[in-house]
Nucleic acid binder design. Structure first.
Length: 108
RNA sequence: UGAGACGACCAGACAAUCGCGCCAGCCAAUGGCAGGUGAGGAAAGUCCGGGCUCCACAGGGUAAGGUGCCAGGUAACACCUGGGAGGCGUGAGCCUACGGCCAGUGCAACAGAGAGUAUACCGCCGGUUUGUUCGCAAGCCGGUAAGGGUGAAAGGGUGCGGUAAGAGCGCACCGCGCUUCUGGUAACAGAAGCGGCAGGGUAAACCCCACCUGGAGCAAGACCAAAUAGGGGAACAUAAUGUGCGACCCGCACUGUUCCCGGGUAGGUUGCUUGAGGCAGAUGGUGACAUCUGUCCCAGAUGAAUGAUUGUCCGCGACAGAACCCGGCUUAUGGUCGUCUCAACCU
C-alpha cells in the first residue's frame, strides 16, 4: 500500500492481533489481491539500518505466505521492545500472526 | 619481546535456488524468456565551503556574523601542504583562537603592611634619649627593599662591585626595548650598537585593526492537471423575463448560453545523476596539487529497492543504510600491512 487513505482505512476498521513486538491490523479490500503496509516507528527502532532490515524480513515473510491470504489489506506496526529481538524471534512472531490472520478471514 | 609514533589499505569469500528497484533486449501482445546493474568509509552529525535553482541587486556606508603567524594549493573553505614561533614528550612525533591591553571601557573572591602614581608588618642599618648585669634592651626620628611572611600574581634574573644597611646605584652575562646591517618572497632568524628597567594580567571581556560574507533552499525550481470558490476577455440574445440606477426612453451593471484565457488543490511528470568523475601512465613541484594522454560509465528509490534458505572454508564478520551533487571537518567502529622511536635481552 502506498496511499495515506489506504492506511487510515485499515487503522479505522482493521481487526487487530498483537504480540512479539508487533501489532497486525487487517481489513478486506477490493483490489483482488492481498496488500502489505509497514509502519515501523523510529521511536521503537532507532537505527536506520535495523529498520530497513526489519522491513525486509516482514516483506519476505509476507511474500512466502501471500497465497494463503484472501483479499485483505495488512498493516504491520512496531511496538516498544522490538529493538531487543533478533531475526529468528521476529520470524517466529510473524508465523504466529499469519496463522491468526488466516484463521480470522476463513471464519468470516 | 614489550611500550609507543606516523602513514596506507580492506570492510567475510565462493556457489545454488526463490524474490526486489533501475536499465535496455527478444518472442510476442499485457504475458513469457534471457541479460546487465544495484549503499558507505564513515552513506551518520548537519558543523563549514562550493555547484545548481528561485528571489533581490547602480554605487558606497552602517549593522550582524565569521576569519586572524607567513607562503602556497583549491571552485571555495574554518580544509590541505610547506615553513616560522611558542609549548609538551627521553624519542619517533604531537598540540596551538598564534593580530592589538601606549585608542577607550571593564573585571579579579580571600589573604596580605602593600595589587598598580606600589608598599614598611616582622626585619636590617644610622642618629638620639632613657635604662643597664656594659653583652645589650626599650622609646623616638630617619634610611632601606637584600631576607621572612601573604597571595594566582609583589614593579627584571644571576654574580661581582658598592654601602651604615641597601638599592640598575655601577659593571658583566641573560632577558626586555629601540636603531642599523645581513639572510629569507614572507612569518622570522642572526649580528653589532645604544637605552637603562619601564606601560602587571585578562581581548573564545566589550572593543580596535585587517580581510571575507545578499537571502532562501531539491519540500529549491519547472511542467501536466481531476475537483472546487471565484476572476478576466470575446461572441450571441436582448424577440421574451426579472433586479438596480432613473419620472421615462436610450444606456450601463447583474442575469442567460457558448467559447477562450488565467489560476492552480489532490495526484502525476521532471529536476535525478557524465561529474571541480574513477582508473592507468607521463611531466612539473619538497609537498598539497596541477597539466597532458589513454581508457571506463559506476545506485537513482519516492510508504522508499540488496532479503531469505542451503552448502563449503576461515580469523566466525565491528560501526552502520544513499534521498540534488561535490570538497572538507567531527564523531562511531573491526582488522591488515609498512616505516620509524624508546626500553630490556641475545648475537
Amino acid at each position: 500500500m502506498n496511499r495515506p487513505g489506504d492506511f487510515s482505512r485499515v487503522f479505522r476498521q482493521g481487526k487487530r492481533t498483537g504480540g512479539g513486538g508487533l501489532t497486525v491490523l487487517t481489513v478486506d479490500n477490493s483490489v483482488g489481491h492481498p496488500r502489505l503496509g509497514l509502519a515501523i516507528a523510529k521511536k521503537h527502532v532507532k537505527l536506520a539500518s535495523r529498520r530497513n532490515r526489519l522491513k525486509r524480513i516482514i516483506r519476505e515473510s509476507f511474500r512466502q505466505h501471500q497465497s494463503s491470504f484472501s483479499n485483505i489489506d495488512i498493516v504491520v506496526l512496531s511496538r516498544p521492545g522490538l529493538d531487543q529481538l533478533d531475526s529468528a524471534q521476529i520470524w517466529a512472531a510473524l508465523e504466529r500472526h499469519w496463522l491468526t490472520v488466516v484463521a480470522q478471514w476463513q471464519n468470516s
